[in-house]
């Protein structure tokens, strides 16, 4: 992660509750607006985070107990890192195919790295260039 190069960081720590989905959507919309993303791009990001939040909800025992979302608002890109999902998106099954397919298409870059604290960290990057 390149948080040091970011100008602003917004963090969310969300409990394992379905009604938190709206907080994710509203925060994502606000961050997207602040970084200058258009409505298409903001909607894409909401779709991606909605997908990740659903994966988190589907976890009976989420590794961190909560979902941590970190928005790094850089000058050239918006990087969104989520921690707290135990789901390995690269494991071969239909749900993973689906989630990865969606995430790879809504972001300019998507990666998943093992999280030393448990589970995986999923990073979505949206380029801010025109």
């Amino acid at each position: 992660m390149t948080e040091e190069q970011s100008t602003d960081v917004v963090r969310l720590k969300l409990p394992h509750e379905e009604n938190m989905a709206k907080i994710v959507r509203l925060t994502t919309a606000a961050v997207a607006s602040k970084t200058g993303l258009n409505l298409d791009q903001a909607d894409d990001l909401q779709t991606g985070l909605d997908e990740l939040f659903r994966l988190f909800l589907a976890d009976e025992n989420p590794p961190l107990g909560r979902l941590c979302i970190r928005f790094n608002l850089g000058p050239e890109k918006l990087e969104v890192a989520t921690e707290g999902i135990s789901h390995d998106l690269f494991k071969d099954n239909e749900i993973n195919h689906y989630s990865r397919f969606i995430l790879e298409r809504i972001a300019d870059r998507m990666e998943q790295i093992p999280n030393p604290r448990g589970g995986y960290e999923v990073i979505l990057v949206k380029s801010l260039a025109e």
């Binding site: 919309a29 606000a30 997207a32 607006s33 200058g36 993303l37 258009n38 409505l39 298409d40 791009q41 903001a42």
Partner: peptide, 16 residues
């Protein structure tokens, strides 16, 4: 092109 929130806010006279 797709507008951003500030574009719509300006257009409608609303806050972001």
């Amino acid at each position: 092109r797709s507008p951003g929130v500030p574009d719509i806010a300006r257009e409608m006279g609303l806050s972001e």
